[in-house]
Simulated scan of single mutants.
Amino acid sequence: MGSDDANTILRMASLATPMALRVAVTLGLPDRLRGAEVAVDRLAAELGVAPVPLGLLLGHLATLGFFERTAAGYRTTGYGENLCGDSLTTVLLNLDTAGGRAELAFVELLHSVTTGQAGYDRRYGRDFWSDLAEQPPLRESFDRQMAHRLRAEVPQLVAGFDWGRFATIVDVGGGPGTLLAAVLAAHPGARGRLVELDTAAAARTFAAHGLEDRAEAVECSFFDPLPAGADAYLLCDILHDWDDEHAGRILARCAEAARPAGRILVVEQVGGRRAATDMDLAMLVIFGGRERRVEEFEALASAHGLALDAVTDVSDGRSLLEFRNV
């Protein structure tokens, strides 16, 4: 191996830059230095951090083009402005959010690869969902993360499938209700219910879209009996968060509620189809899950009396698998 190859590998493996970016976003540096030149000592005093290490952080990120050093201090560059504001990027990089905190579980990747178990639990002493339940700010940041993640794809998800076939839809674990609200808005004859442990965000979404008469948020765990008799049960970005045992239990509840004629609609990044390989590792270390392939979904569902009818690529990143009871 030549020295150039070795150096490239070391740069790829270095944790310095990804952690520096996360610390900068967590401290709010891109926004604070946007359009302003601020001296390191003054900035450190404002933030309550040590000035010399802060200077080292800014110096490294300046070499990468996120900040520039001036006679008066540092300021955010045009490139660095991508780290400003409230976006999926900033929500995921901020170490105080659910997404940023979760990514630190990658330090336990060896444990996860060795055991197949989540690294998150090992790092924090409890699983991801328990963490969110015990820390409301993490829950709020996770809802924002999911809204950001789906926002760009929601129009594709709505247009890419014939939702009009279903008069009633139950969105199982639908979070802030972004997708269900969009589906109902596009199909005025449909009604929806959203199942979630905390329904406050979904209620706000439905109110904002004027859907209070057609959409209801129900506080319930998807491991418990679900509202029965709907035409369709939607699981969007749910099953990849769980190992096979728990994912199977969720599907079983959907199958139970949907009998005899309802459909189960699984929307996810499907392995070998739409999923990125880095997401496989993220699902593993955070949840002990993965981005399953079509045949893996079929095997999981068949154990609970479900058969796969169709697979539709509904967006740039996600596919929809439609199951029926047999």
Rank of each mutant, 00 (worst) to 15 (best):
F106D: 10
V326Q: 15
R290Y: 09
R193N: 02
T8G: 09
D316Y: 12
G272R: 04
D278R: 11
A303E: 15
F67C: 09
L157P: 06
E196M: 01
D231T: 02
G288W: 00
P30E: 05
C254I: 00
G248A: 06
A13M: 14
G73R: 04
R259Y: 06
H240T: 06
R101M: 14
T277A: 12
A186D: 09
T17H: 14
A230I: 05
E296Y: 06
E295D: 14
T205C: 11
G175V: 01
L10H: 12
G262P: 09
A200E: 14
V23H: 12
A217V: 06
E37K: 08
R318G: 01
L306Q: 09
Q117L: 15
L194R: 03
L88K: 13
A307H: 14
F287L: 00
L239G: 01
A247T: 04
T199K: 08
G177F: 10
G78R: 13
N94A: 07
R259Q: 13
T17D: 13
V107E: 15
A190S: 04
A275Y: 01
T168W: 03
W163S: 02
R324D: 11
A208V: 11
T178I: 13
A186N: 03
T97F: 05
A303D: 10
D280R: 04
E295V: 09
E134D: 10
R34H: 12
G271S: 02
A182R: 11
L93A: 06
I9D: 09
L58C: 08
A208Q: 08
E212D: 07
L194K: 03
L95G: 08
A16T: 15
V183L: 04
A247P: 02
G305V: 00
D86F: 13
A16P: 00
N94M: 01
V154S: 08
L150E: 11
L54T: 10
Y74N: 07
V195S: 07
F206R: 05
T97P: 09
Y120I: 02
S302P: 08
H240V: 12
A247M: 02
F222T: 07
L33G: 09
A71E: 13
R191S: 12
G189Q: 06
N94Q: 05
V267K: 09
D213G: 02
G288I: 06
D278V: 07
E46W: 12
V326F: 14
L180W: 10
T76H: 00
T76P: 06
G248N: 01
G2T: 15
A50I: 04
A118N: 04
L180M: 04
H60T: 14
D280P: 10
V195Y: 02
A282K: 10
L321W: 05
F161D: 03
R75L: 08
M19H: 15
L33D: 07
F67W: 11
L211G: 00
M279P: 04
P176R: 01
L306K: 00
A276M: 12
P188L: 08
G28S: 05
E296A: 05
A228I: 09
S302M: 10
Y74G: 11
D309T: 13
D96W: 09
P30S: 07
E196N: 06
A36L: 14
L104M: 15
V266A: 07
S3P: 11
V154E: 00
M283K: 06
S315H: 05
F223Q: 05
T97Y: 03
P227W: 07
F206G: 11
A39T: 07
S87K: 04
G99A: 05
F222M: 14
D241Y: 10
V91C: 14
D243G: 14
P53N: 10
G125Y: 02
V183T: 11
D162K: 08
